[in-house]
Amino acid sequence: MKNISIYISLVLLIFSGVMLFDSFKLEYGGDYGPGAGFLPVWVNGILFILTFILFIMSFKKDIRLIKDVLPQHKERLHLLITILSPILFLTTLNFLGFTLSSILVLFCLFVLSFKWYWSATFAFIVSIVIFFVFKELLSVPLPVNQFGW
């Protein structure tokens, strides 16, 4: 089970299965023409069949080993941190405010390549610039802490 195609096609199969199941709950046709479920039933039905074929193919024809497809060692860690960084931003934003959350996330990303003091400096400068551009120039209401940043 080191074949990544199996996992991706399985996720797609589950997605299409759930969508197809939910499509059946919708009205297929009404008095005046097709209902809300008409196209979803067909689209999700065909998608389900195709993802099932892909799932079967992934065992025999479309084999892609995780070790060949995903990065190893340092790059894998970097990738994971990058994927987690928006989650860190989302979880801290409401109580830390934009600037501190942004500094935290950027620090985590910069520190992968720079010394901690350079990372802190870059994170601080970039966050302030982004805050200024979006909040002041573009008038985007960024979530702020009790101090207004």
Binding site: L106, F110, I130
Partner: peptide, 18 residues
């Protein structure tokens, strides 16, 4: 890239939020 990518990521996050 080590400078550029974190900046792009943050702009992407803030841009999506906005």
């Amino acid at each position: 890239f080590k400078i550029l990518l974190p900046i792009l990521l943050m702009v992407t996050i803030v841009g999506t939020f906005s």
